[in-house]
């Protein structure tokens, strides 16, 4: 099993519903977020192209955050999902520095926090909160080992990219371009 997410940059309108849904679902403290939307503009006026990306933890196949964690608080669970155990985390910040995607933040309680792919929802057979609320349905979540899953289907039929592949982290959030 290998959970992954595919996000269609052509369909995303940058509404940030995914951000709000995540904050509410996961009780993210006010002023923080586990996912966010970036806008990148290519070209020069008036020939412009805008790319919108909903970004979050990439649940890497080769996660540097798990490697550098001194206590094992950062760990990998089923489907390659990377989680943090708050009462094992000492708040040293090594994982924050090791993440090329700046996906982690220091929770006001002291421990490090990040996207969990809503593993608590997945275990119940639900979709992650961000995917479930997306009004343009530009996000796909599923198991890459299952060739009939929506996410496998998308990666088979569409062109995609991942962020900073040269970092060697093997990220598992794919952007359809």
């Amino acid at each position: 099993m290998r959970y992954a997410m595919a996000i269609d940059t052509k369909k995303c309108v940058g509404c940030s519903d995914c951000v709000i849904a995540c904050q509410i679902e996961n009780e993210v403290p006010v002023g923080y977020c586990r996912d966010w939307v970036t806008e990148t503009v290519h070209g020069s006026y008036p020939m412009l192209e805008l790319e919108l990306r909903s970004e979050r933890c990439n649940h890497c196949d080769n996660p540097p955050c798990v490697r550098c964690c001194p206590t094992g608080a950062s760990h990998v669970v089923e489907g390659g999902v990377v989680l943090v155990t708050p009462n094992k985390c000492i708040g040293c910040g090594a994982c924050i520095e090791s993440c090329p995607y700046e996906a982690r933040y220091s929770h006001p309680d002291g421990h490090v926090d990040k996207c969990t792919f809503c593993i608590h929802r997945i275990r119940k057979g639900l979709q992650p909160a961000c995917v479930a609320v997306c009004p343009t349905r530009c996000m796909y979540f599923g198991d890459l080992d299952d060739p009939s899953s929506e996410v496998s289907e998308m990666l088979r039929t569409r062109k995609y990219k991942v962020l900073a592949p040269e970092a060697g982290t093997k990220p598992q959030v794919y952007y359809l371009v």
Binding site: C68, P70, T71, I90, G91, C92, G93, A94, G110
Partner: peptide, 26 residues
């Protein structure tokens, strides 16, 4: 002082993580 979850610092000493330089340091 630099730790943000100070009361859990002892967690460094409940595990040995060969891959983590900070574990070595501790």
């Amino acid at each position: 002082l630099d730790l943000k979850h100070k009361l859990f610092f002892w967690r460094l000493y409940t595990t040995i993580r060969l891959e983590s330089p900070m574990s070595w340091g501790a």
